[in-house]
Write a protein that binds this DNA or RNA. Structure first.
Lengths: 341, 341
DNA sequence: CTCCATTCGGCAAACGTTTGCAACAGATTA
DNA sequence: TAATCTGTTGCAAACGTTTGCCGAATGGAG
């Protein structure tokens, strides 16, 4: 039915190996022969069968990309960047969604293992041990998690979180809340640690609330608890939760940033669309996707397991404003200037 | 390196064909033998090589899913549903992103053709001819586009658009704008047609502005043009554009829904998060994704090329309110009641 | 004119499965 | 008792490539 290498060989009067080489090792075939073969291949509409190729070379030219939740707007830019970048290198991408479930996560890796040349694991919720285990079955690159000996691309949320907390402190907030993300999240631990250290160093109080699922509903549901602490500055695990909190506060007629300041993390597309526009920590997700693909594809050559760290930065918008300790004269803009490093 | 069917055969003292049958046609092998084989397979960690299987059976157990833009929040729920549904049937999904470019779209289909058992084409921008052409290379199911003779899953936006226009008319708006989507979009044509007919039937004026890229920026950029028409009710091609318009109007101190009413289409997750909450037409995207997968997988069996139509419905929130023709007494809630069919 | 190096292309094995066919045993039927 | 059937297994070919090896042809050096 489909046109194979054999049809092309027959039609252009050469052996099948010559046709094969025309595609997979062009420098080994006479330019004249090559162009003739290419012409008939084109004419016949020949397309290499990747399954056959994979069978003999052991390389599928596919990579897997596992995320917690495609519908979480944090991921699509990363997926898109990874996919485009991979395609440019003649790789295709399987995307899978774990629904935030570590069990499903492990199953997916197993299922994909034989079908891909490697897997990109985004913010995995599995234990380090499990990941090390799976690593023996298939090349892995982890995104947003640091595991010694494992190639990884991480976004340095610690840096962004420190900036965020400092921003709140500079604005005169002395009691903060960190609205924690899901259990098992490396990012969550990093943020908590960074935020906690920064607050402590400044002698401010930081209350951690959580863990929470990283969705708006959780942010909204936490509103009461946040208010109960008496804190005036909030850092949320991600923009989704921050936005949920924003809405819940609005519903309670709590002014943001008038009475409470809120900072998110991720800078998803919608953080600039809600009102007030959300102050947040921007994550270079597209760059992370590309870097992870590169890392995975290079992994075969040398066993080097690098770790790339990408920088995150605070973006000051309108959900943060002066706190109780600020002299009335200080405006957000003035204080913002101090955060620049 | 990897453990093959041969290793399992040797370890359990049977021929490789018996092992093969244990997995692909269990009823043909003695239960006793079967369990023995399964045990050793499990113990050895055997996993079938899908490339080899694909080579001989001609079925890859993969399907392709091509969307215009993964980052457009309309798509992730569809992708997620399709992917989960496919996995339950032991299929994996390749996701690809065309960046709204019909050329890339065609290339992607070609590239994926040999690698998948079929392709789901979401809101394709190609010409009908091109799609018919590609259909000869690989089984296709089209989502949100109607092409005679081609299996399709469409969301009946016409229905939702009629409801939306009627809602605006009932509220007392007699001059409406349709903020059109991209050229080549079937959905766009459907909406325009339905909206136009409904407005005309009621003797109201409907101005079409466009085409536009289906993004917020386009919606925001169209604000001036919308105001220039003097219309007081706007239906946008999608929520993204509607939200962009909302922001732009807010920036110009035009009250929504006080001075202008706005309706979007899609009911993306964020349409309920912006303020005012967006009145919009809900699309059953997840159901569409599942239906399309089913249709694709059944296609092999019989050549039947069904067309499934899914219903869409207006969701009334806070971005629509009384227009110039409404007696002051009529509230949104009262008028809303009239839209129920 | 011989020899060697180089370039090119053919040959055939291999990759890990599936599957039609045949073999065989035991059970059933005539 | 012979013939037929059923259930289980083995045998080997096939799927469409890639690739190590070898031989043929060419050209330059000696």
């Amino acid at each position: 039915m489909a046109v194979t290498i054999r049809d092309v060989a027959r039609a252009s009067g050469v052996h099948i190996s010559t046709v094969s080489r025309t595609f997979s090792a062009p420098h080994l075939v006479n330019p004249e022969t090559r162009s003739r073969v290419l012409a008939t291949a084109e004419q016949l509409g020949y397309r290499p069968n990747r399954a056959a190729r994979a069978l003999i070379t052991g390389r599928t030219h596919n990579i897997g990309l596992i995320v917690a939740d495609i519908a979480n707007p944090f991921f699509p830019p990363l997926i898109k960047a990874a996919e485009t970048h991979a395609r440019r290198r003649d790789y295709h991408v399987f995307v899978a969604d774990t629904d935030e479930d570590p069990i499903v996560e492990a199953e997916l890796v197993q299922a994909l293992a034989k079908q891909v040349d490697g897997i990109l694991l985004c913010s995995p919720r599995m234990s380090d041990d499990q990941i090390e285990q799976l690593r023996r079955e298939v090349p892995l690159v982890v995104i947003n998690r640091m595991i010694t000996g494992l190639p990884a691309v991480v976004m340095d949320v610690g840096h962004g979180a420190r900036q965020a907390v400092r921003h709140l402190l500079d604005l005169g907030h002395d009691h903060l809340v960190y609205l924690a993300g899901p259990r098992g999240s490396w990012t969550n631990r990093e943020i908590r640690r960074a935020a906690g250290a920064t607050a402590r160093a400044a002698g401010a109080e930081l209350t951690v609330l959580g863990p929470h699922q990283p969705v708006e509903e959780a942010g909204a549901a936490a509103a009461e608890a946040v208010l109960a602490t008496g804190a005036t500055g909030v850092l949320a695990y991600n923009d989704l939760m921050a936005i949920g909190l924003l809405q819940a506060l609005q519903d309670r007629d709590i002014a943001v940033p008038g009475q409470v300041s809120v900072i998110g993390i991720d800078d998803i597309a919608y953080s600039g669309l809600v009102r007030p526009k959300l102050t947040t920590v921007a994550n270079p997700t597209a760059a992370a996707g590309r870097a992870a693909v590169d890392m995975l594809l290079q992994q075969g050559d040398d066993g080097a397991t690098g770790q790339v760290t990408l920088r995150t930065d605070l973006i000051i918008r309108n959900s943060t404003g002066p706190g109780p300790l600020t002299p009335a004269a200080a405006t957000t803009a003035e204080v913002a200037a101090t955060v620049k490093e």
